[in-house]
Amino acid sequence: MVRRGCNNLECTTPGDPYEHTKGRLPLFAIASVSVNTFRLCALHHSPVSVKKPSAGALLLGLIPFAAMCFSVSFWDRIEPMLFGIPFNLFWLLSWIVLTTVCMWAAYRVETARKKQDSGAP
């Protein structure tokens, strides 16, 4: 398996660890997945690695954005009222809870990846 991210191994490996990122532009700030590490990591050979978030976690993070922000015209109405609350308010309150679910999943993705990277014995 190809290891991604800047762990000690890669930092001390000769060559350009950013080779695969050349010519790619970050289209959206949060989704700027094109570069996987902060450059100083490679320069100082520090044991602390600053990694980019995984694509899976980023996708999970985009779900709340789609639901609470971009789709506003679909849910901004009063009817149907649920539990006596207008639909738009109810939708947002529900997505507060669902956002935590999404981010919990993203957290699992990130921690699983970390374990893998640290090379469990």
Partner: peptide
């Protein structure tokens, strides 16, 4: 309601990295 929630989503992807740089 939307922005205070989504702000934490953003934080998930930048704060840990900022913290690591900060410590170093």
């Amino acid at each position: 309601l939307a922005y205070v929630t989504l702000a934490y989503v953003v934080s998930f992807f930048i704060l840990p990295q900022i913290w690591e740089m900060g410590r170093k």
